[in-house]
Computed example of a mutant assay.
Amino acid sequence: MSGTEKGKAQVEQAKGKAKETVGRTVGNERMTAEGRADQAKGKAREAKEDVKDVFRN
């Protein structure tokens, strides 16, 4: 897996988790949902890179 892409995926997941936590803390449903969406995008990016790795090897 490309180190930079994997790093981007992990950063995106971490940002999403932080956004979700802040949203829950302040009672902002929209921010909570955006955090969950960011996490999902990060996981999808990571899964895409995993598939690429399978076909490279």
Rank of each mutant, 00 (worst) to 15 (best):
D38S: 14
A9Y: 00
V11L: 14
G16S: 12
V11R: 14
A40N: 05
K43T: 09
E12V: 10
E12M: 15
R45Y: 03
V22M: 04
V54G: 02
T21M: 09
A18K: 13
R24V: 05
D53E: 12
N57K: 14
T21A: 14
K19A: 09
N28F: 04
V54L: 10
F55N: 10
G3C: 01
R56I: 13
D38R: 09
E20D: 12
R56N: 13
V22Y: 06
R56Y: 08
A33W: 07
G42H: 01
V22F: 07
E29F: 06
V54R: 10
T25A: 06
V11E: 15
K19V: 09
E34Q: 15
G23F: 00
T21Q: 12
T4L: 04
M1D: 03
K43F: 01
G16H: 01
A9R: 00
A44K: 14
K48F: 11
R30A: 15
T32C: 03
K6G: 01
V22Q: 07
A9G: 05
R56C: 05
E12A: 14
R36E: 14
K52L: 10
D50L: 04
E46Q: 10
A14S: 15
S2V: 06
D53K: 11
D50H: 03
G3F: 01
K15F: 12
K17L: 07
D38W: 05
V54C: 02
A47C: 05
D53M: 09
K41T: 14
E29G: 08
K15Q: 15
V22T: 10
V11P: 05
R56V: 13
Q13S: 12
T25D: 02
V51H: 05
A9Q: 01
K52V: 13
A18C: 08
G7C: 04
G23T: 03
K15W: 13
G42Y: 00
A18M: 11
T21I: 07
K52G: 07
K19W: 02
E5F: 05
M1S: 06
D50A: 11
E34D: 15
A47P: 01
V54A: 11
T4A: 02
K19M: 12
F55P: 01
G3S: 07
K52T: 10
